[in-house]
Design a protein around this nucleic acid. Structure first.
Lengths: 238, 238
DNA sequence: GAGTGGTCTAGACCACGCA
DNA sequence: GCGTGGTCTAGACCACTCT
């Protein structure tokens, strides 16, 4: 069955296998997986063991299960991808979907800090996406997004990026985002910040430094977001 | 076993029962629950069904299970209670534990907004705890904490509060905190803010408006925290 | 009616903690 | 060595979806 050393429970082995099949593209987003019974037969384990693996993946939002239909690889719809972890809302609580504004992408050497945060797999080059985003048609958010150039070949050619970024990562680069970690602070708008989103120098901005992790717990994106929180609220739920 | 209408799965009924026993004080924090087998016999369900309920409660941090020992009602240690949901850290990532500074508690009528957010059960009175907290012996955090007076009888007499608040809620008022929801924005320090934590008027502050929920998903606390993020970072993980 | 996931059971064996 | 939780199995029946 397994050597005692380095033993992993069967259901975790099943979990690992299916995760790697998803990240290898054997099962694509939206696609239906074989039924529990079929998987159990293929893998020579009981249905209960398969279920435990699938249930874990469901709670991690990697899969979606629908009674009477089947088990599906989760898709990142554009709404979900932005709001999935943390999102913006009106003071009255209704969710806000920022629209994309100006955007530029360039390739450059990563700074020491960026390479420390990102899991580049040895490569030194990164893409930097700079963009503004609009709330109610007014610029309110400044994003600087850094990703490994190695993992995102040809990203500059995709500009302007019209879909949500996490959707792009998934569909074009096979990167399945499952978690984020945010560091949040308050800063004063610099001259260039103020110009980009039409506020005075010295106005308060929320700064969010986010690391984004894929299905393998690898850090695939390092993002700095600055938000003018006049009339907007950043929400975190747990 | 159950009428088709209003049916709840057995494991959810078990879950509900144990949750209410914990909140009624039949099982106290730190106490050991009966074994799976004993519970199964008492409740006339299979061990697997009990396990599913206990596993859910474990993932919600209501219980802790230790192989070979037993299942225990979770306790809020003072470190965990502050850092459990979101916490403060140095720019280099090490966690910071703020110390309590000045504190005052008063009883008053709740504002419309507070009564809307809080689950007061009809009562109009609230306690407001105003306090500052120190980072590296310097005032850096301003808290305003509002709770229902009905649920927290005699709170003024407990001042100054030396333990972590969530620990107090649990030990003295039988309120078991299990989740929070934060709204975050950036503001400019007012004159009174500036005075309290020794910064200039107009400096940027992070403002966190938090609702805290107990084991019954009831909102038991509405808290406004203002943080001077010079040299401190507020961290959120998901 | 056939196929899917959802619930529930009964029983086996393993790994851990402790006396 | 005993009691605990952790893993795994095999099989039953239910509820939902689609044809």
């Amino acid at each position: 069955m397994a050597t005692t050393l380095g033993f992993r429970p069967l259901y975790q082995q099943v979990y690992d296998l299916i995760v790697s099949q998803i990240s290898d593209g054997e099962y694509r987003p939206g696609e239906m997986l074989p039924s529990e019974q079929q998987l159990a037969n293929q893998l020579k384990v009981s249905q209960g063991t398969v279920r435990k693996a699938l249930d874990t993946m469901t709670s991690e939002k990697i899969l979606e299960r629908r009674q009477g239909k089947g088990t599906f690889v989760a898709t990142q719809t554009s709404e979900r991808s932005t709001l999935r972890f943390f999102g913006f809302s009106d003071p009255d609580g209704t969710a806000i979907m920022p629209q994309n504004g100006e955007e530029s992408i360039k390739r450059r050497k990563g700074t020491a800090k960026e390479l420390l945060q990102l899991d580049t797999g040895g490569s030194q080059d990164v893409y930097e996406i700079a963009r503004t985003r609009l709330i109610k048609n007014k610029p309110a958010i400044i994003d600087k997004i850094v990703v490994s150039a190695k993992s995102f070949q040809g990203l500059t050619k995709r500009s302007p990026i019209n879909t949500a970024l996490y959707t792009l990562y998934q569909e074009k680069y096979g990167i399945h985002v499952i978690s984020t970690s945010d560091e949040i602070s308050a800063i004063i708008a610099s001259k260039s910040d103020a110009k980009k989103i039409g506020i005075e120098v010295g106005a308060p901005l929320l700064m969010i430094q986010r690391r984004t992790f894929d299905i393998h717990k690898k850090c695939v994106e390092y993002r700095t977001t600055k938000v003018n929180t006049q009339g907007i609220i950043y929400t975190a739920r747990i």
